[in-house]
Design a protein around this nucleic acid. Structure first.
Lengths: 250, 250
DNA sequence: CGACTGATTGAACCAGCTCAACTCATGTGG
DNA sequence: CCACATGAGTTGAGCTGGTTCAATCAGTCG
């Protein structure tokens, strides 16, 4: 893992950042993720207010959005790309607790410190909000708070599924569950396909599934040998979904 | 594991249930967990309204409060005892995703189905609310919703810690982290002590830590042999907390 | 007392890890 | 255009932490 640099709260004129507010064509009006993101709870009339406190920001692949333990100055809505969220131990062991896809919100808890580190897996585009401005915006809009709470409840449920996976599933079950999951998530954001894009590295997958890179690789190879999937550049083609679903039940 | 029977939504006159509303001496006024439970967000004037929709209920050890996947008719505030929350696989493998102690809220997500199964580890006392009544009560009290959201954020953070534990920690680290955690939680609810009550079975601990009962037992024995703790009936006495904290780092 | 349940201990095993070699792109600069 | 470094992924071979299977122990209840 190369070190990821924080790019937050600096408007140093880097070509990867747009610091102006994003009204008009780049605003919420034509946002592709709005309907299934937290913003979907807002009336059109309220969107303007949200727009006013949001900034569009770009993070190149492998750069850090924020670091575990740091003061949570911002919250984010991912609009493009993939973000990995992880915790690590002092000796370097790492556990990825989730991948954020377009429509996902970072900083749901609205707590004053980040509980995880967030890094761009691919180039990433986000709507950034200062946390204080966002909290103020939520204040007096209980329907938005309710939506945030629904999202948090969903996250919690996913986390519990992942605990079951990490605590009790075999390597093969983990890999298959991961791929099916990824496919379902891509479908939900309007990219349904038997070919699932897998843009994160084997190391990322391993750190997400509590395995080693070798075990992930061997398991994928085995599944390919058994013709339930084909490994393609930057993805996987799921040939036998029924069989996959039998491998990774409930 | 013996089968646990659901005891919900039936007021059949069982001696373990109190079906009347609990005003007066048994109400919120003198509730020992109020300050650190979700109810702590309410004004004294609002407590009456909450009291009016709450029922005190008792669950004997090993009985089920609710089942994963069932319609969520009720939400609960635990006031006494310990509840295990778990998910299981069709073949019987089980992952306990958390233990609820007094002050903990069950059904935080307010979703329409329970995501986990809840069973009493010890005899348990709860405040029960019908979910619809509780949701209606929350409606129009954004400070309570905010409190629920804070609790959910905290739960999410704990879940992420547990993912790190399950995915990347060794057996010894898991057991030690569990004991330190339990001690800290007991301290927070006003029962700080070097002797930590461990009222759940070895099987429960194993299913929480993603280990087998034998590994939990061996690990505890080893720690006792090394004099960092003593195993006592229904608990553990932590002798060398510094050393324990070195075993299970942040 | 005997029966039962939960916990401990021992011994053999194995799923996944470690260590190491190799492949295959992609990039770089002479 | 080739030589060669670099980094991600794959594959092999051996090892080991934790599991599995099995026996024993220790309370507790009837």
């Amino acid at each position: 893992m190369t070190a990821a640099q924080p790019l937050l709260d600096s408007c140093s004129g880097s070509p990867t950042q747009e610091c102006g507010h994003s009204h008009g064509a780049t605003g919420c009006d034509d946002c592709k993720v709005r309907s299934f993101s937290v913003c979907g709870a807002l009336e059109l009339s309220e969107l303007e207010g949200l727009d006013a406190i949001s900034q569009v920001r770009h993070f190149p692949a492998k750069t850090m959005l924020f670091d575990q333990g740091a003061l949570a100055g911002s919250v984010f809505n991912v609009t493009n790309g993939i973000v990995r969220l992880y915790k690590s131990l002092p000796d370097g062991r790492r556990q990825i607790v989730g991948f954020a896809l377009p429509g996902d919100f970072l900083g749901l808890a609205l707590s004053d410190r980040y509980g995880v580190t967030a890094e761009a897996v691919t180039a990433v585009k986000v709507c950034r909000f200062s946390r204080s401005a966002f909290v103020a915006f939520v204040e007096g809009r209980p329907h938005l708070l309710r939506r945030l709470h629904e999202f948090a409840g969903h996250e919690l449920s996913l986390a519990q599924d992942q605990m079951l996976l990490l605590g009790r599933r075999t390597a093969e079950e983990r890999v298959v569950a991961f791929l099916l999951n990824l496919q379902a998530r891509h479908a939900r954001i309007g990219a349904a396909s038997v070919t699932v894009p897998v843009l994160m590295s084997r190391q990322d997958i391993a750190d997400y599934l509590g395995l080693t890179i070798e075990t992930v690789s061997r398991t994928l190879t085995k599944l390919a040998r058994e013709k339930v999937l084909i490994i393609v550049p930057d993805g996987v083609r799921l040939l036998n979904k029924e069989r996959l679903e039998r491998i990774a039940p409930a």
